[in-house]
Amino acid sequence: MALILVTGASSGLGHNTANALADDGHDVVIHVRNQARLTDADDASRWKGVVIGDLAELDEIRGVARQASRFGRFDAVIHNAGVLHSPDVINVNIVAPYVLTALMDKPARLVYLSSSMHRSGSTGLRRLTAGTASYSDSKLWVTALALAVASRWEGTSSHAVDPGWVPTRMGGPGAPDDLTAGHQTQVWLATHHDVTPSTGGYWYHQQVQTPHPASRDEDFQARLIHVLESHTGVPLD
């Protein structure tokens, strides 16, 4: 049985991921944006706990880290929360995963939600500080963060996952990928030991894929982390 945190777990892929982990007997702590997102009273008994905070706000991201830390060191953290068309793309999709990673005790496993759209993302990091980044940019950056952590943190496995274009509220009803397959890779990476590579993978439906070359470039990774450190005031190591 593992202790696992899933961010953005009130609906969609995050909710499906959290439910699958709970069904398998794991202790699941879910993150939701606000209390109103907990609409199903029957769900409360399924969770080890709930942490609440708006990942679009830096102070609330810090608050989520403090709340989560009360549960002790997690076996796995799944950075699922994300937005597509919003002025909060930068904070939710890259700043929040970065700050939570930096402030929380190092878990055994980290899983970051990416997207096939990361391949059209920009390496121009001025977009991050200027607040002009696109969804694709944010997903390139979070993929690079996942792979940077994989090479920097011995003892912690770190992977990025493309869940596919699935029919959630974000993906829309016409999305062509399988909804169940959309969360299975995250669950597998968070709980199984027979994963190859053991760290630093970019995955789609439990198969390793080749990500944007910049995500594996150590110079770009270092520049990204430096910008995130300066932007948030939170060092990674």
Rank of each mutant, 00 (worst) to 15 (best):
R37C: 10
W188E: 13
S115P: 09
A96M: 10
G200P: 10
Q35D: 14
K48S: 13
W165R: 01
V234N: 00
A20V: 05
P173H: 10
H118D: 11
G131W: 07
H192P: 00
P97I: 02
R126V: 07
A148T: 01
I4K: 01
M117T: 10
R46F: 11
P211H: 07
G200I: 03
K139C: 05
G164P: 13
G201V: 02
S134G: 07
V187M: 08
F74N: 00
T210S: 14
R73N: 10
V83C: 11
W188C: 13
A68F: 05
G25V: 02
N93R: 00
D24R: 15
L125M: 09
V208L: 12
S136P: 08
T210M: 11
L228D: 02
E57F: 01
R127E: 06
V99Q: 00
D177G: 10
H85D: 13
T7Y: 12
S10H: 11
G25A: 05
H193M: 07
I94Q: 00
S45L: 12
G124K: 09
V187Y: 07
A22I: 04
G155I: 09
G12H: 05
E229L: 07
A108N: 13
R216I: 00
R109D: 06
M104T: 09
P97Y: 02
A214Q: 04
A44E: 15
V99H: 01
W188K: 11
R152T: 08
Y112M: 13
L103S: 02
D137P: 09
A146M: 07
A146H: 05
I61A: 02
R216Y: 01
E60L: 11
G72Y: 09
G174E: 14
R46G: 12
L236W: 05
L224M: 05
L236G: 05
L38T: 04
S115K: 02
P176T: 01
N91D: 15
A160S: 14
R46V: 07
D178A: 08
W165C: 04
S138G: 08
R216F: 01
T17N: 13
A222Y: 00
L110W: 12
L147A: 01
F220C: 12
N34S: 15
A68V: 04
P173N: 11
P107C: 10
H15K: 15
D27L: 13
A65V: 06
M104I: 12
D40K: 12
S86Y: 03
A181F: 08
D105G: 01
P87C: 09
V99F: 02
S69C: 01
P211C: 09
G171V: 08
D237V: 06
F220P: 12
K139G: 04
D219C: 02
W141Y: 07
T180M: 07
V161T: 01
H192E: 15
S10W: 05
S122Y: 04
A146W: 06
S114A: 15
W188A: 13
L145V: 10
V29M: 10
L224S: 00
T123E: 11
A108I: 00
S198P: 13
G182D: 11
Y135I: 04
R62D: 06
G72A: 08
W153N: 05
H31T: 04
H192K: 12
T7N: 13
A36Y: 07
A150V: 06
G124L: 08
P176V: 04
R152M: 12
T199V: 02
S11D: 14
W188L: 13
V149S: 04
L128F: 06
V51S: 03
S122A: 09
